[in-house]
Design a protein around this nucleic acid. Structure first.
Lengths: 123, 123
DNA sequence: CGTATTATTCTACAAACGTAGAAAGAATAT
DNA sequence: ATATTCTTTCTACGTTTGTAGAATAATACG
């Protein structure tokens, strides 16, 4: 089991997911101001490599860093943790909580219903 | 803005939510084996008080600790953070991802649809 | 090539966390 | 009332995190 990412590692991970693959300079570039020091990013990248979330390939010049874990996969993990830790492992309970609590617009709710219907039909 | 809870603080918070209010001995009791040392719990409670998530009242004998933040409130916060950090702040996007990704049973999906319909009607 | 620039590693350090012993204070049991 | 037990605070210590300077290695530019 991979150690989990810290907050600021997650932030960088998000940038990586958006860019798919990038050299460090572009990663820094992608940060909102105030951008962290280059060495800070470097440290994070190193730690994330150690944790197994990132790797790089070298094509001539600078390293191209890229994520080793899909956003979807990572994300489902997060949700599942939340569900396990707070909802007694019941996704249904979580879902209903979520639906009531989040302020989805009427349109979003309709869209969601559509998806659910489709899912029901798949089963 | 309250500082956020760490993993082990969250665990204790969950116990508190379940028990509503309890003296330390009962909190320890509620932990799964191997239970942490009493002083560990005490430290956590202290830190959680400092962060504003817990308080206690004294009625004669030992302190009764209780949560200052509702599970629902805390929890919505967590989800919103997730949505903000990973879904570009779109709850709809999150919802559809969630629905597709989680293995809800047919019944759970039906129940969820019911809730959604109710929500749609409210709007 | 040789120097300027950028990338990477090393080292560091303060704050937060996980965990708990030692000490002190409070409750209780006999 | 005193010994025993439980609670709370204090202190501590190793680990992880956030952050970045100094040093070094790699690359680019003239």
């Amino acid at each position: 089991m991979r150690p989990s990412l810290s907050k600021s590692e997650e932030e960088l991970m998000n940038i990586l997911w958006r860019m798919h693959q990038a050299p460090m300079r572009d990663l820094i570039e992608a940060y909102p101001d105030p951008k962290p020091a280059a060495t800070t990013i470097a440290t994070l990248l190193k730690r994330m490599r150690d944790k197994g979330y990132v790797d790089f390939k070298k094509n001539s010049s600078a390293r191209l860093y890229f994520p080793l874990v899909d956003k979807e996969v990572y994300f489902s993990g997060q949700i599942n943790t939340l569900i396990r830790d707070f909802f007694d492992d019941s996704a249904g309970q979580f879902a209903s909580f979520f639906t009531k609590r989040t302020n989805l617009s009427k349109d979003e709710l309709r869209a969601l219903r559509k998806i659910i219907d489709a899912e029901i039909n798949k089963k």
